[in-house]
Design a protein around this nucleic acid. Structure first.
Lengths: 177, 177
DNA sequence: GTCTATAGGCAGATAGAC
DNA sequence: GTCTATCTGCCTATAGAC
C-alpha cells in the first residue's frame, strides 16, 4: 500500500490538473483518501506547502523523463514525439499540464512556488531547444518556446471540443519538418 | 457615470483575466465598486449568471473587433498583426485571455457557459482560418488552430518571466511567412 | 500518524425595509 | 436599486487525546 503522503500528492496532482489547485480542499483530499483533514495537515501543514511539494516532485520527475528519453531514444524527432505522447496521456482523464494550470492561477500563488514554476518551464524549454538544435533549426530557443506555447495552449483547448486530435494538429509541423 | 451593471461586468472581466472566475467573490466586486454584495446579486442573481453574461458580452465584442478589422484593414497580415496587438494590450495589466482562463477552469463551469466558451473559440479559429486562407495556406483551419494555441499558451507563460516578447516569439512566423 | 473537536473567517445566497 | 441583517455551509488551520 502506498504511503499516505504519496497518496495525497498523487490525488492533489490529479485534482490540480483537472480543476486547479485552488479548486480542491483538504476536506476533498481527506474524503477520497479515507482519512480526516487534520491528517492531511500533519503531512502538509499549510496548503502552500502542498503546492511547493507538488511542483518540486513534478520537476524532479520531468528531469527523469528527459534523462530516459535522452538515453533510450536516438533521434530528436523520436524524443519530441515521446514528450508529446507523454502529455497526450493526460487527455483521457481530462487533465492538462499541472504547471500550465498553476500558470493560469499564477496571481494567487506564493513566491516560492512561483520560482519553482518558472524553473519548470525554463528546463522544459531548454530541453526542447536542445532537440531543435540537433534538428538544425536556426533559432532553437524560439522554436522550443513555440512548441511549448502550442502544447500548453492546445491542452487548454482540447477539453472544450473533447477531441484529442486538437493537440496533434496544434503541434503538427514541429516533429516532421 | 457608467451604470452599475456595466461596472460589475468590467471589474469581473478584469478579475477573471488576472485571478480566474472562481477566485473573486461578490464581496470583492462590491468593495471595489462601492456597493453592498446584495446589490451585485440584484444585477446577477447567481454567480453562474454573471459568468454567462461575461462570456456573451465578450463574444459580442470579439465579433465587433473582427468586423472592424475586416472593414478597416486591407491585408490578412495587417489583420493578424492587429489581433495580436489586441491581446498584447492585456499583458501590461497581467491579464490573459478571459476565455483562456475560463478554459482552464472548465471543469467547474456549468453547461450553458461551456457552450458559449466553445462558440467563442470556434468563431476565433474560423476568423483566423479565413485570414490564412487568403494567405494561400494549404490547411487554413489547422493553421488557425496553431495560431490560437500558441497565443493562449504564450499568454499563460508570459506572466512567469514578465517579458512580453514571449508572445511575439511564440507567434513568430505566422504573420510573416 | 490519525483522531475528535473546534475556532474564525469567508463564501454564495435570500428576505424584507427604504 | 441599494440597503441591513441573516442563514447555511465550507474553508484553512490548530489543540490536544490516543
Amino acid at each position: 500500500m502506498t504511503d499516505t503522503r504519496t497518496r495525497i500528492l498523487d490525488l492533489a496532482e490529479k485534482l490540480t490538473q483537472t480543476k486547479g489547485f485552488k479548486e480542491f480542499s483538504y476536506l476533498d483530499l481527506a474524503a477520497d483518501i479515507g482519512v480526516k483533514s487534520s491528517s492531511i495537515h500533519y503531512h502538509f501543514k499549510a496548503k502552500a506547502d502542498l503546492a511547493l511539494a507538488l511542483v518540486k516532485r513534478h520537476r524532479y520527475r520531468l528531469d527523469e523523463v528527459y534523462a530516459r528519453f535522452d538515453r533510450d531514444l536516438v533521434t530528436p524527432q523520436e524524443r519530441l514525439r515521446a514528450v508529446l505522447a507523454h502529455f497526450k496521456e493526460y487527455i483521457v482523464d481530462d487533465r492538462i499540464c499541472m504547471c500550465g494550470m498553476m500558470a493560469a492561477e499564477f496571481e494567487s500563488i506564493n513566491p516560492g512556488v512561483r520560482r519553482e514554476l518558472v524553473h519548470y518551464f525554463r528546463d522544459f524549454q531548454d530541453w526542447l531547444a536542445k532537440q531543435f538544435s540537433q534538428l538544425g533549426h536556426a533559432n532553437p530557443p524560439t522554436v522550443g518556446l513555440q512548441f511549448l506555447s502550442a502544447l500548453e495552449g492546445s491542452l487548454l483547448l482540447v477539453r472544450l471540443e473533447g477531441d484529442a486530435s486538437v493537440v496533434d494538429h496544434a503541434l503538427d509541423g514541429f516533429v516532421t519538418r
